[in-house]
Write a protein that binds this DNA or RNA. Structure first.
Lengths: 340, 340
DNA sequence: CTGAAAGCGCTTACAG
DNA sequence: CTGAAAGCGCTTACAG
């Protein structure tokens, strides 16, 4: 047990060859430079000692850590794990490892985390924490590291991003409700400093306009994407718009908060009020009533983000790109014909 | 933008001092060795250039990467994110960063991931992937790296672990059901190669025995902790034990599968069959009916795992420890009085 | 085909 | 209090 860590030099000494020869053998790309017989001897000895190249040392020498940092606002939010999975799946294929870090929503804390990641010499950063005007991205740009945002984007579009087509999701939702006869539809407006919150709001208004329902739109602020905020916003919506028959929640967590609110008031969904969420996060088909929501391909989003970052790593001059995934409305039991 | 990366040597050159002097200033622990006036000059210049020490180089020199690898079987399983969060929260306080990696359940793939992590010179590993007899742990032990398992443990107890007290959880569940008048209780037995599956099964049998119900216990295998497997296992249970009035699922996902099965057969929960899950994962209070389940402190579990690893990092000879967290039964709407 | 040497950016024991 | 030097484990341009 507890074998002493074997190095190139150690192996070379045992084999009576030069360390650089061993090094050449260990790298498949340079192995051909070494004689067959020596290659065999080296490989055998390396295996015998469980030799594992020290990637830190390699990183130091080559200036490439083969590490990509991923910063998340909150990994317990179910939309992020599939994104991370997608990122990992794709990057692993290319020899990169992910340094994941939860940083919360606070920009100072995020800056701290980015500094930690940069100190570890990550080759690139994928940020799921972007705000519409993001000082952390400025910091990354100053540091000269490749950056991509995922799920959210900046207004300035200084960096490439992979996002959901929010306008389309809202359009599908509104179309669905209007087809069911709804006319008074409330949108619980998500955080406006996030692209998702902002674009869903815009998309909602555009979709209403397309149906000629744009005068006096029903909007209620929901300052964070949480169940608690959703409950409070729904409470307010029911008071401010008593004639509303449908609620378009900022996301699924907010929609679950609406369920809490309705339940507390003895209102039924969808008989009294129809509800639509956003994200189709896991298990919203198992809640009661099963939630109608906008499905986003989160795993794919992660894969795309990884590809963008690989692209910018391969070509430092590659331009800024926005990859926009198309969502799909998943109709379940929380939406029904308009009452009365 | 895109400032050239500043180094100790570069700063020293600008300041006209020796690199080691700059190095001493950058480390608060050695700063006192340098004259006040020089300290001020160095600090100022470092700030001006946004100097960020290269931790890779430091790691190489000191032999400490300040990196802890965390290997997960599946980050989309909602029990793991809070564990990761707990680990990160605790390790961050001590200057460590987490290298997280999803490896799935396959041992070869896990071995590959561990090798990747070791090549990055992680100081320690936290494994959420442990099986009762785990070759990957053998590999880690051979490599001489500090290891701790979380959520699951090995039978051999070669390494420290943080686990839930499975026996107690099952005891609480059975007590609750018996108090409601249930006598025919089926356990959907989780994977037996995992400590959780094994110990819950044992705990179930012990709990039955404590109530004098141990003859002919109702057991149905549920080979994986998924909703699909839960549905199939529930289907089988209803056929094999038609007189059963309660089902103790292997975990919450399995319990959700039971809901699917009951719904498909037009059976009501809890009127026809009571269901208990395990984990109290997010949103199981929002499913219908709200799930009675055993709550595990997952965040705390992560914190404890981080502390165990820090302990073993501080004292390489520290003995093997098993930290067992006490669960709590959360009674909701999926359990009710025994029918008939 | 193989060897010898330099250097990535730090830390730290040794001088002075 | 500051400097000079060695070395962590690699990679790679240069010799031979």
């Amino acid at each position: 047990m507890q074998q002493k860590k074997m190095t190139l030099k150690g192996l070379a000494q045992i084999l009576g060859v030069h360390p650089s020869t061993v090094g050449r053998v260990m790298d498949p790309a340079t192995r051909h430079m070494v004689g067959d017989e020596v290659v065999q001897r080296v490989l055998k000895e390396a295996a015998r000692h469980g030799y594992r190249p020290n990637k830190l040392a390699a990183a130091m020498r080559t200036g490439q850590s083969k590490l990509v940092g991923v910063m998340l606002p909150d990994i317990t939010n179910p939309v992020f794990p599939p994104i991370v999975l997608g990122i990992e799946d794709e990057l692993r294929k290319h020899g990169y490892l992910v340094l994941m870090s939860n940083a919360g929503e606070d920009k100072d804390q995020q800056r701290f985390v980015v500094d930690q990641l940069l100190a570890r010499q990550v080759d690139a950063l994928i940020l799921a924490t972007a705000t519409r005007d993001d000082p952390v991205i400025t910091r990354c740009l100053e540091a000269g590291v490749a950056v991509v945002t995922v799920n959210r984007s900046e207004d300035g579009a200084r960096v490439s991003s992979v996002v959901n087509d929010e306008a389309q999701g809202m359009r599908q939702s509104v179309d669905h409700l209007v087809a069911l006869g709804h006319r008074r539809i409330v949108h619980l407006v998500g955080p406006q400093h996030l692209s998702t919150g902002h674009l869903r709001r815009e998309g909602f208004l555009q979709a209403l306009a397309a149906h000629g329902l744009a005068d006096a739109p029903c909007l209620v602020d929901c300052p964070s994407y949480t169940r608690e905020a959703g409950r409070a916003a729904c409470d307010e919506a029911l008071v401010r718009y008593p004639d509303a028959t449908a609620i378009l929640a900022g996301n699924d967590l907010v929609a679950l908060g609406c369920y809490d609110s309705l339940r507390a008031r003895g209102l039924r969904c969808p008989e009294d009020v129809s509800i639509i969420g956003h994200n189709d996060m896991p298990f919203v088909d198992a809640v009661h009533p099963a939630l109608t929501t906008v499905r986003i391909g989160h795993h794919d989003m992660g894969v795309q983000a990884a590809q963008l970052i690989l692209r910018s790593l391969a070509d430092g001059t590659a331009g800024v790109l926005e990859v926009r995934l198309k969502p799909a409305l998943v109709v379940r039991a929380s939406t029904g014909a308009c009452r009365a």
